[in-house]
Simulated scan of single mutants.
Amino acid sequence: MVLVYAATSDLTTWTGGPPPANATQLLRSASMLITSATVASVYGVDDAGLPSEAKVLQAFKDATCAQVAYWVTAGVDPTGGGISTAAPVRGKRLGSGSVEYDTAVSGSVTAFQAKRAAAATLCAEAFMVLHQAGVTPSGVQRG
């Protein structure tokens, strides 16, 4: 069973804008990444497996939303291994209806590697949210 730490409404609140069409999939993928990043952390859970302490649950929710916002901004789709099939538009003309895509940047090996890494790596903001809540595996426990 995959735990999902945030809902589409949480993402809308976090970003201040409408959720992307694939928000449900992104929230699920981000939640799995959060679970993996905190696998060695110590925190209480409820019967469903969610963090039982309100502060920790909120951190998981916020980190999940931060990760999704990062992916959306970076144009990364983690369900496809970070590969984006849409090349950025390099130029367009209105007169004869021409659109030209810039495949040099989006198709480069460096861009591919960066997107693949971003699809499987916790972004800085999500890490900081978890770290400040004390749920990153650091070997130090509070309380």
Rank of each mutant, 00 (worst) to 15 (best):
M32V: 13
S9N: 04
L50N: 06
A118K: 03
N22I: 04
A117W: 01
R28T: 14
A23W: 00
A119R: 09
S84L: 02
G75F: 11
A119G: 07
A111W: 02
A133M: 10
S98W: 05
G97K: 08
I83F: 13
M128E: 10
P137Q: 08
V39F: 12
Y5H: 15
A120S: 15
P78S: 11
A120L: 08
E53N: 08
Y70C: 04
D62W: 03
M128S: 04
A59F: 13
G81Y: 02
G16R: 06
R142Q: 08
G81R: 00
D77N: 13
Q132H: 09
G139Y: 09
A111D: 11
R28Q: 14
V105H: 14
E100N: 01
V56K: 10
A133Y: 07
H131L: 08
R28V: 09
Y43K: 04
K115D: 03
S52E: 07
S84D: 15
N22L: 06
S138G: 14
A54H: 10
A7W: 02
V89H: 04
G81V: 05
K115H: 06
A40C: 03
R28I: 12
W71Y: 05
A48H: 03
Y43H: 11
A118W: 05
A87R: 01
I34M: 11
T110K: 07
V140Q: 05
V4S: 15
T136M: 15
V72S: 09
A48S: 08
A63S: 13
Q132N: 14
W14E: 03
S138K: 01
G80E: 11
R93F: 03
L50S: 01
T85S: 14
F127V: 01
T73G: 09
S36E: 12
P20S: 09
P88W: 00
L26Q: 09
P51M: 04
K115Q: 08
G81C: 09
L130N: 05
K55V: 14
G95D: 10
V135D: 07
V56Y: 06
V39R: 11
A54L: 04
Q25E: 15
A7E: 06
G82T: 05
V89F: 01
R90G: 15
S106Y: 00
A30Q: 00
K92A: 14
R142F: 15
A87M: 07
E53V: 10
C65K: 00
S106R: 02
